[in-house]
Amino acid sequence: MSAKTPHAIRRPRRWAIAPCVAGAFALLAAAPALAEPAPECVRCHGMSTLGYQDRASGAVVSLHVDADAYSTSNHADLDCVACHKAQYGDYPHADAVRDEDLHCLDCHTDDERLARFKLDEVGESFARSVHVTRHGDAFTCFDCHDAHAFDIARDRDQVADVVLDSNAICLNCHQSTETVGMAALAPTALDVAHAWLPNASLHRRHVRCLDCHTPDDPAASHEILAAEDARRACVDCHTADSALLTKLYRHRVREERTRAGFINATVFNDAYIIGMTRNVALDRASVAAFVAALTLIAAHAAARWRATRKAGR
């Protein structure tokens, strides 16, 4: 492992990905205790601008740990040194600590409590993701997920917030001109790549990148698809049986489907999706009125026809 990449300091091996998420889930069972990371670490790592400009990539690498976010994260009751075990007694810390290899699996192997999250699937689907197939080992789960703030339990009332959070992770790299290697997807390039998509910015605000860039299979939640493999058929989502129901709205469908009148009531509060949002009552009423109108016309026409025939005679 090279010490040059910006994320070297907190970089796990690829096979260790699933357990890193697992670590977060593990804590869900117990009520998360509010804790703060060790004060001696926060003295420096609490500085929001602690960081450096990486010599190889030119990117600014932050070494800041947000103590507030940490204290509500799934790792909250872990001490810093529970994961970071290298020699941190020197100030500034020796360069060697950057090569510290963090393995989520070290803490969470065969954890029964995490079985329901199917972390093996997460790991496998991640291995198939374009991030890994293109960048190999250089891409780790920490490139998207911040172990110091990870909070799986965080509830989001608004779908818009879920979208914002999720897309922020993607745009962090895909819209940053600072990130080397992503230059091809710099802002304008991102827009160019989505030029085919009508109302691209509207889509970006209301659906997750993942909704098009992962396969339908729920087990493949971490298999990020490249542009050429991603969903392009409008009607996949713009239909009554929208793909979004198994993706973005998955958790809301169950609870809200029972609500009156509306199919896809799940989005009733948040967005109108052409082809997907339908009002059953309205739809039925319109068909009924249409049929009634045609019948009336037919009857009238028939009566007229008979009347003219009679008159003709």
Binding site: P198, A233, C234, V235, D236, H238, T239, A240, D241, I274, G275, R278
Partner: peptide, 17 residues
């Protein structure tokens, strides 16, 4: 558009739009 359905593509969504 309103009754868009992949299994019954009357007019393709993109063209209809």
């Amino acid at each position: 558009l309103h009754y868009a359905d992949p299994s019954f593509p009357w007019i393709p969504f993109r063209i209809a739009r």
